[in-house]
Design a binder for these strands. Sequence first.
DNA 1: GGCCCTAACAACGA
DNA 2: CTCGTTGTTAGGGC
Lengths: 261, 261
Amino acid sequence: MPELPELTVFADNLSKAVVGKEIVKVDYRGKKSVKVPTEELTRSMVAARIDKVQRVGKQLLVRLSNDATLFIHLMLKGGFVLTKTEELQQLDAVILAVSFADGSALALTDPRGMATVALNPKRGEQPRDGLKVTADYLQAACQRQPNKMIKALLVDQEVIGGIGNAYSDEILWRARISPKSLAGKLPPEAIDALVEAIPAVLNEAVEEIRRRRPDAVSGEVRDFLKVHGPDLKSSPNGARIIKEQIQSKVTYYTEEQKLYR
Amino acid sequence: MPELPELTVFADNLSKAVVGKEIVKVDYRGKKSVKVPTEELTRSMVAARIDKVQRVGKQLLVRLSNDATLFIHLMLKGGFVLTKTEELQQLDAVILAVSFADGSALALTDPRGMATVALNPKRGEQPRDGLKVTADYLQAACQRQPNKMIKALLVDQEVIGGIGNAYSDEILWRARISPKSLAGKLPPEAIDALVEAIPAVLNEAVEEIRRRRPDAVSGEVRDFLKVHGPDLKSSPNGARIIKEQIQSKVTYYTEEQKLYR
DNA sequence: GGCCCTAACAACGA
DNA sequence: CTCGTTGTTAGGGC
């Protein structure tokens, strides 16, 4: 569930909580042999300090003082817990447990066990972040994949980093564009509307989440969304909300949104 | 159109006609720069003798006395013409014209220009030939792609070499298996039925074609097929033949064929 | 709700 | 009725 807004807040709050701390113990219980050889992970982390925590697309990047870098993806249900070393064992569904020299601890948890940790991954082309989308960039992306539905393009992490199912619906409603519009058919006005809507929706969500859950490092608040959600019946303007599977994703939209095909 | 049976007969007949002959002239008029650099082709062929012509999957392999190897794919409409050198220029749609020292000549023709010639292609893993499919092999292939429709698997040249759209329908009817069955759902009896049907259908077709067109090096006879064909209304047992697009291919089958899903 | 992998399908070209 | 490639969608598994 966590998308750009939640992850931005998590990154800020984790920074405040753990930057500068020295790691004294690491316990990885994630999927065996998938992303990280456990010993290598421990070796790379113990005795280092945490220099920085920042969001990169839908992942959190944790940079250590020894130049090792962790990439954490929360997938559907992952989250963090800030606690003390002696209370770590009480936690359920721990993927990665990190203990600090001062007795505090940080755990990555996921009831579904899907969250991933990657150590120094080699990364290719970095996608444009959701907060940095320009009209030129979006225009070019739409030209490149003209027959792709605009919703598919917005949630494509190789095109724009950070937007998921929920916020794509919010962005498209704000821009008054149907999720089923074809990218190549969007006129310049529609591109402009998206370029306005993307950071507006995301930044407003960041602020709302900060206000409501100032220390959040897990979970989500989604009750301020305007069209995406099973309990919403109509948009702020009174239009009936349509729920439909689009690309295997539950999508909410209204007739206010123009279909370009 | 030509599939394993036609190509088997063509290979036999070409062998009889041209093996041992010395090539004196080569004229390639295929797609420029696609499969063969023309000069290299001429250089490799002139002065050599033809040692062997054999079918490999849906292609014909022509081995020359200088160890050069030609792979010819007839695609949809390609075929051969055995003629004399002085009559070559009367032919239409010639892709490759080869003149022999004795005044005879062989032309590869294709009205659509799709037939291809490859010189000494580097070939990776060779697929199992349609005439050499065993239960173990087919079983393993079905396990590897369990969600693939069995018709798709049969015509996949990386799995089995030589079977195309028409004969896949004949084979599936003989085995009484619906083309839309999923490979991974076929029980051992169904695998066995296929392993019986594949060579039976193909070999019977080879014999029928030999009987009807003993010298064929082009074209096709398909009027002996039992379910695949636009004019057939019912199978030999009287079941109504269903015509349906399956994987973008016109497919004929009947309700006699069991669907495993 | 996320990502990856496989497969289906359409379109075009050769 | 062929094959290859490209682009997009749909489904299942973790």
